[in-house]
């Protein structure tokens, strides 16, 4: 409540047993009824509207007299002593502070993380290895270097859906460009994801990065491939696909994990994070 409120002043100025509040008034309900009756003219009769206007006018004038020249109020007596609010009793020493690790409470704030650049590097390296696996599959099983390239390009080239198997084995410049862009982008993004989340995962990062995450990714791809890339869905060789994913996970995870971790600011107080303490310390030193 504002200190300038007259109601407060009344209470604080010495009239201890009453508090000044706005007086009850019938004018709001009258005015509201007039407004609704006026609106009802459209669906009833002009007479209803005229009646509503008169009521609205009466409500408006009455309200005006409620607040001008002086605001109508009533003094409300304080509740008798026994019915007033009970004073809140302090309960010192009752607070249990949760400690890190207490009662198996799991607190995992990564105090250090791998640099994002490691994720990018890992993504590129993993993408290269994955491409080698894909090309190996094309050459060994389909006698075509370009087969996996065209399959991947089909994700953004709807025309590929009508291509025959022979056409899919031929070189296509546009498909190669699309394939490089799509594969490069996805590899870098996944590498970044590895870089960010690997430190936050429970122990056995290698297992997570090389096995669990590739399998999860394979599951997602398996569930959605028919919609995202029907051509790839038709020709995909799942053992090769899974091997390529695992190879990506292994290489990316290795590159990320081998990078030098850097400290985070998570455990620093806000003031230190924004360097306020440092500045103060410097000025103190100078003085």
């Amino acid at each position: 409540m504002s200190q300038d409120d007259p109601a407060d002043r009344e209470t604080q100025a010495g009239a201890e047993e009453v508090i000044r509040l706005p007086a009850p008034t019938a004018w709001p309900i009258i005015l509201a009824f007039g407004v609704v009756l006026m609106a009802a003219t459209v669906v009833t009769n002009i007479v209803v509207g005229c009646f509503g206007f008169v009521i609205l006018l009466a409500g408006a004038v009455g309200w005006w007299h409620d607040v001008f020249p002086v605001d109508q109020h009533e003094d409300v007596a304080l509740a008798p002593e026994g019915k007033r609010v009970r004073e809140i009793q302090p309960r010192p020493g009752q607070v249990d502070h949760l400690k890190v690790g207490e009662a198996q409470h799991r607190v995992r704030l990564p105090e250090s993380i791998h640099p994002y650049s490691a994720g990018v590097r890992g993504g590129i390296a993993g993408g290269v290895v994955m491409a080698i696996f894909a090309v190996l599959h094309g050459v060994l099983d389909e006698d075509s270097f370009w087969f996996p390239v065209n399959l991947l390009a089909a994700v953004v080239m709807p025309g590929m859906a009508d291509a025959s198997l022979e056409q899919l084995k031929q070189f296509n410049g546009l498909a190669l460009t699309v394939c490089l862009v799509v594969h490069g982008l996805v590899s870098v993004l996944l590498g970044l994801l590895y870089g960010v989340i690997l430190p936050m995962l429970p122990s056995r990062h290698f297992l997570w990065g090389a096995v669990v995450l590739p399998l999860m990714w394979t599951g997602i791809v398996g569930a959605t491939l028919g919609v995202v890339n029907p051509v790839l869905s038709e020709y995909v060789d799942w053992p090769w696909f899974i091997a390529a994913q695992v190879a990506f996970g292994l290489v990316t995870g290795l590159v990320v994990l081998r990078s030098e971790p850097i400290a985070t600011l998570q455990t620093w107080p806000l003031a230190e994070r924004v360097a306020l303490e440092g500045r103060r310390a410097e000025s103190e030193d100078r003085s």
Partner: peptide
Amino acid sequence: PRLNAVGFWIFFF
């Protein structure tokens, strides 16, 4: 406070 009452009664009516 009075505008508050008007708001309610307009809603209700």
